[in-house]
Write a protein that binds this DNA or RNA. Structure first.
Lengths: 225, 225
DNA sequence: TCATCATTTAACCAATTTGTAACATCAATA
DNA sequence: TATTGATGTTACAAATTGGTTAAATGATGA
């Protein structure tokens, strides 16, 4: 059964959504904040219904986070109260996303939901979000790294680098490429900075340090499954 | 050569962009309005640099139009003056798009441009570039060479030379040409350096050493399929 | 503010790759 | 076949790359 994650702070709206979507034959997880949404996001999530106006982390920030950091491609339907945002959002349908302005009828929402799921299913090859190597498990969605069943703590940059490599197994990443992808605001740091981060990740990976490989002259990479 | 379409109404900014991007080795088409941009958009356009604040049709509307109506997937880098819009835009990177806030340094822009083009190229319908000769397989994308099913390790230069020859079977490559193509940063090495690399590649190719042929006075080449 | 952690730079070493030179071989042809 | 220039091979030197550690810088939160 397809699982829909609902992120909406208004309890009334949230309940109506959950009830109706549930009724339509989907599994639902309804949360009230983006932070909670990140927690409940999993590889089973088929679609996210996302309110753009949320306390704390906004819906946009949430979307940014899962697209950029988690490299998660789960389609999103934005719920927006402002009709002016229509233009803005509509420009980005490419990724399979959609928007819908409040107030909306449940039937319209369900129709839209069905359409997005269909489109997504047809196009996107579901990419794995969990990577394994020996007794190492990298869960890009949950943002956890388990070594021999025990969680290990990576810093932000460390996690970003590991995620980038994991999301593209078998692809070589030169230091320059890694910097261009991950240091968007400051792409002028020295190449060697990457090495140091890699070294620290490897140290934390312990006996699984070979998870991150390097081919001299080509770059860092992770073996294809 | 990759063609970049620049849509920016400020003539100063437009000229600076065009000049620098041109200098960086791209072909540029610079226009001052979205309408004009639509006119100049072609199948040759590799990337669009798009100001979001435009007179007439806004950058967003432009993006919407080419995504939805024209079903055009050319990656877009949005130029935005408002840093608040950063979050908003960043949520939609899925399609290969990116954003950059003014003011920005040209170097940052160029780095980002390069990254987007690369990412886009990587996601594009990967027609595997694989060359075969007897029991030898050269995979230009994965950067691997299989001899009798077993992987052999080529160094970077070795692989680059082999790829150059593979990509143009039947064409003779003089030492000078090979150096001009592959030693972009240091095109002053001796001709004979190429010979040594060829010798080393051949040694690794074992009984398939004849894959790389030489016609005396013409250069190295690989037989046409 | 200080203390702490993350990030970046710098410096050193080892391993590998790359470039050069010298010598050996081959192919064309006088 | 002898000569000559182009190509193939080998050994060594130079340059580059990658791994590591320590110190400097920057960010964050009590």
């Amino acid at each position: 059964m397809l699982e829909i994650l609902i992120v909406e702070d208004d309890p009334d709206v949230r309940e109506i959504l959950a009830f109706n979507i549930d009724n339509a034959g989907y599994a639902t997880i309804a949360v009230s904040s983006a932070e909670e949404g990140l927690d409940r996001l999993s590889s089973k999530t088929s679609l996210i219904l996302l309110d753009v106006m949320l306390p704390g982390m906004s819906g946009y920030q949430f979307a940014q986070k899962i697209r950029n950091e988690l490299r998660n491609n789960t389609p999103i339907i934005f719920l927006t109260a402002k009709s002016e945002e229509k233009d803005l959002l509509a420009g980005f349908n490419a990724g399979g996303d959609d928007y819908i302005s409040k107030p909306f009828s449940i039937n319209v929402l369900l129709a839209r939901l069905k359409a997005v799921l269909k489109r997504y299913d047809a196009t996107a090859p579901t990419q794995d979000k969990v990577y394994q190597y020996n007794d190492l498990v990298v869960d890009v969605v949950q943002k956890t790294v388990l070594l021999h069943g025990k969680s290990i703590e990576l810093s932000r940059k460390e996690f970003d680098i590991l995620t980038l490599l994991c999301a593209n197994p078998g692809t070589y990443f030169s230091r320059t490429t890694i910097i261009a992808e991950l240091w968007k605001d400051a792409p002028y740091v020295l190449d060697r900075t990457v090495d140091v981060h890699i070294a620290r990740i490897r140290a934390k990976l312990g006996d699984c340090r070979d998870f991150i490989k390097n081919r001299i002259g080509f770059g860092y990479y992770i073996e294809k499954a």
